[in-house]
Amino acid sequence: MPSFLSLPKSRALRWGLGVALAVVALAAGIQVGRHGFTWGDDRAAAALLAVELPDPAGKPQRLDQWRGRVLVVNFWATWCAPCREEMPEFIREQSARGGRGLQFVGIAVDQPDKVVRFAEEIGLNYPTLVGGLGAMELSRDLGNRLMALPFTIVLDRQGRVAHTQLGPLKPADLRRIVDPLLAG
């Protein structure tokens, strides 16, 4: 065995090394627990991009028609007040940065007529698709364990997961996440 692989002879040193390794492993565990394995996330993102969901008119749409843009996929519902409250900000961002390649897409866990009525009311300027609880399961695969709303996924131009967010996305956070992706 090469000498650099041999264990230190001092008991204290061995103990210290053991503790250090254990803590590093724990920290790594925390990281994985929070973010999941990146590969798994990207596979889930690919599944999300490939799924076919109806728009409010009933026409099937796929999210990968917007591949190449920075995609913000927002799961929402009219019965979710915090969802409705953050959408005016998404509308502003869509008109401000749509030209630079930013694309919001909603997935409403709701009834089409309510989606249409609310979209008209707030002047929604980005597409929203309609999914049932099956659509929520797509979000679960991306880390939304409780299948709660709003849940937002930011994908880079290559379709890789850049950010996932349960609960409202603060305007400053949104810009901090999206800006480097638009520049890249």
Partner: peptide, 26 residues
Amino acid sequence: AIAAAGWLALAALAQAAGLPAVEPKL
């Protein structure tokens, strides 16, 4: 060596804990 191992451990923990909270506790 013990001090170095300790620091390494702390740094690793701080990195894990210092990441922005992704979601509220629910």
